[in-house]
Write a protein that binds this DNA or RNA. Structure first.
Lengths: 257, 257
DNA sequence: TTAATAGTGTCTATAAGACAGTATAGA
DNA sequence: TCTATACTGTCTTATAGACACTATTAA
């Protein structure tokens, strides 16, 4: 081959300009439930929200930004992201996954800083205490559409848009819905969670499809009580609904049949 | 919140340890065709191969490694990966996408170096001249299973394994097969390409499925000549086969019906 | 005539999709 | 009795899957 990069020649760190930092930024989604004021029990309104922090200092002081911070040499990026998130939300056992890197020159006025974006999915209940304490403070949940219309710090608007696209795809093709649901849930809840993330989702016969056909291959299964009787819930309706849970089965999708 | 990271306080780069480099490493896959020696025209054997480079210097001198090199402050990681790959293969118009980051402490003896892995998919024909010139040199294609059994530099074995898993999933769920095929191809070729990447793929009625059902929603379409007559090919068989091309249609897969 | 690929015919079982109807129980 | 959710019945059409059969033509 022609000239090789530094990796193929004698290496001396001081000869090269090196990055000024490798932060992890976390797009933390949750789905909030708000009770509707109806005559009787009803399903709540569910809305996809994203956690933002108001910056205190340069650059972008005053602007809202994604939580995150610089990673350390002694940790992986994933460990770094988990640490930062725990510092922000006080919650450790969240679903968190690497997602993409952002490296456009000039994206951070502090220098050459490549940001590593993570997506975290959190049960609303884990944030409950935090919200009470910090409401109207410098850490808040915003509805996703609202966040996407805001002037955020850095390229965080683009990061959120990419993260949203990714979880929309994953919501339809994997079982990440479980990250937003209790262990046992009703079909109505599952349907709502899918719709909160993918508004265009509409399946007239949803219960029929999920409880026959593919479900025979076991994405979800009915919950039974100790006597082997179907376990029901009437949280949301007069008529009790069957409770389900996700199994470990992950269907392999294919466009080729 | 509790204590904020550097991003939320006054920033002074010199106060923090910074990374020693952000290289892009490229897992470049291609599918090679080898004619079988049969009595007549027949489909070639197709094999998934990955491009490796033999390192000349410390660290891991003599070991085979992924092509790549340190990114520069003035370019995005994608631009960096494209540049490195072009230097290696002489080809510019390849399909290349970001894939993951590798950050385990100690993964690179030269220091704190977070590697950005890309997957590139290349038509075999683009490599044809290169191979003739460089055969038995320090840049070679290896069958993927062989590469995964080798002692490679850094954590490149793990990177290749992850990349393989990713393109296997994408081969089944997207139309990346087109990156390994000519503009116009036969069903037999498509089937072979899928199998080269996903050996477990087996569809007895493949032609039937792809030309009815989902194909009515248009993943591929028949190629016609100027007179509107079906365009055929007899590259691989006595009986001429219909040529197809991919459309722009990307099916939306779902586990929920 | 055969080899090697490229299809088609036909049948059956399963799934998708629509849509009207029934079930439940607290307010 | 009404309301809001949770289903079930029934019909039609589409798709999946198996597998035997026909088609093509240079060597």
């Amino acid at each position: 081959m022609t000239e090789q990069g530094p990796a193929e020649t004698n290496y001396s760190p001081s000869r090269y300009r090196t990055p000024d930092g490798a932060p992890a930024d976390i797009v933390m989604f949750t789905i909030t439930s708000t009770a509707r004021k109806t005559a009787m029990k009803s399903l709540p309104e569910r809305r996809l929200e994203v956690l933002l922090i108001q910056r205190k200092s340069w650059p972008f002081a005053g602007r809202w930004a994604l939580p995150g911070g610089f990673s350390k040499e002694s940790e992986t990026l994933l460990e770094s992201a988990k640490r930062e998130l725990e510092e922000e939300t006080g919650v450790g056992d969240v679903h968190i996954e690497y997602f993409s890197a952002y490296s456009t020159p000039g994206r951070d006025p502090r220098g050459w800083i490549i940001s590593h974006a993570f997506v975290a999915l959190v049960h609303e209940q884990y944030l409950a205490e935090r919200r009470a304490a910090d409401d109207a403070a410098d850490v808040r949940l915003f509805p996703v559409d609202e966040a996407l219309r805001m002037e955020l710090a850095f390229d965080h608007r683009e990061i959120i848009a990419d993260a949203l696209e990714q979880i929309r795809r994953k919501m339809m093709t994997t079982t990440i819905a479980k990250e937003f649901l209790p262990e046992e849930f009703t079909i109505g809840e599952l349907y709502q969670v899918i719709q909160a993330v993918v508004p265009s989702f509409a399946e007239s016969n949803f219960i029929r499809k999920i409880t026959s056909t593919r479900s025979r291959q076991g994405i979800i299964e009915e919950v039974k009580d100790r006597d082997g009787e179907p376990k029901l819930s009437n949280r949301y309706s007069q008529r009790a609904a069957q409770l389900y849970r996700f199994t470990d089965y992950a269907p392999a999708l294919s466009i080729y049949g």
